[in-house]
Design a protein around this nucleic acid. Structure first.
Lengths: 215, 215
DNA sequence: CCGAATCCTGGTAGATACTG
DNA sequence: CAGTATCTACCAGGATTCGG
């Protein structure tokens, strides 16, 4: 038996052979946002050594989860992108992230919060059954980060950066109002009245937001 | 930052810190069947070094996923068992196993098929929406292994060993008829007529079986 | 500056032997 | 039965270097 295999004819064992090494699932999490350059990935995973990032990308490519592509001319850059096969891991990563999030209390000393980890938290808290038939675009402005959440016919797409045509913009002014909305710590009325958020657009969509994103 | 952490405030990163090391998820997969002794785990994971199994069990216990318990007197033995927290990983493991199973073609040279990996495959192929309201007990006899699948009000429980009061017994006689039923390679009528399976009990439950277990 | 490759160190896993 | 001990080999972490 080759040394990095599990010696079992089992789907779960095969999955762990492909993504079980250190950093792999976090790289995939970040690629779920979209194509990324080596440097983007390194920025989003500041603690990964560059040689390990390099090795993992090569492995993910060999396993058919990601592709490496050189952008056409003026943009001479290399981007990494998930294949359909790699993207099919999303439900499993959401389930894992939801399980792990139960242990999140406070950031540990030295821990960072990245845009990609916040984007993942929108995926893990999304409640498809509360979004059936919904189509709406949200822009969330949270200090340094802005996210676009597009729900199209009940399906969620998460992006980093402004939304081109949001139905509702939710802007954080103070504290952590969006986390409080999602955990149920505060109601939409409360965060509007205490001045921790400001909205632009259809105000009814804030109530819909807390129905669709719950933890 | 401690060396085995990811330095990110993220549920997925926390999950990988707890179960991301080699062998951990396969140990959890085997514990999903029920309490197991050290030797049971080693039998179900023949390729794991005993020192690594020992270390992983200690870690799982420290992380609150499993407990170590000495059985009362005459049975002087130690069993390991998942906590509720550990058992909550089941949906994530099912999603991962389902994803990985897409790459399963033939066993690689030297690979073994264990009872626990087959039990996992029943979990990954189970279709809850096809089992809504169903209550039925199956006993599956597949050569060396026998499994009990109890569906109670749409919820599946998988065990290794005979079913105390099966509504239908499905016995493999030749080939891989149960896999063929689940993948759609053969219909219930076909496997009955070609003599690859024999059943005892309510024959209608064989049709129900292929509706509830699909890949 | 981007995307690595190289080198070194220390820690983790694999293999096997051994013990209460 | 349920592990521990020991040794080796490999992998990850960290820093530096290098070609396009």
């Amino acid at each position: 038996m080759a040394s990095r295999e599990y010696g079992q004819f089992c789907g779960l064992a095969r999955a762990m052979e492909m993504i079980g090494e250190r950093w792999s699932v976090l790289i995939i999490r970040n690629l779920l946002i979209g194509a990324q350059r080596f440097t983007d990935l390194h920025r989003g995973l500041p603690a990964i050594p560059t040689n390990v990032l390099s090795a993992r990308l090569k492995q993910l490519e060999e396993a058919g989860l990601a592709t490496r592509r050189a952008l056409p001319h003026p943009e001479r850059a290399v981007v990494y992108e998930l294949t359909d096969f790699g993207r099919d891991l999303e439900p499993a990563l959401i389930a894992l992230g939801r399980w792990g999030a139960r242990t999140l209390a406070e950031p540990r000393p030295g821990e960072v919060v990245t845009a990609e980890s916040i984007a993942m938290s929108f995926r893990t808290t999304f409640q498809p059954e509360a979004a059936v038939g919904v189509t709406a675009g949200y822009e969330l402005r949270m200090g340094d980060f802005t996210f676009r959440l597009q729900i199209t016919d009940g399906a969620l797409a998460v992006g980093i950066g402004p939304h081109p045509s949001p139905d509702l913009v939710i802007e954080r002014l103070t504290g952590f109002p969006i986390r409080e909305l999602i955990t149920g710590g505060k109601t939409p009325d409360e965060v509007l009245r205490d001045g921790s958020v400001r909205t632009e657009g259809d105000p009814a969509l804030l109530g819909r937001f807390v129905e669709m994103f719950r933890f």
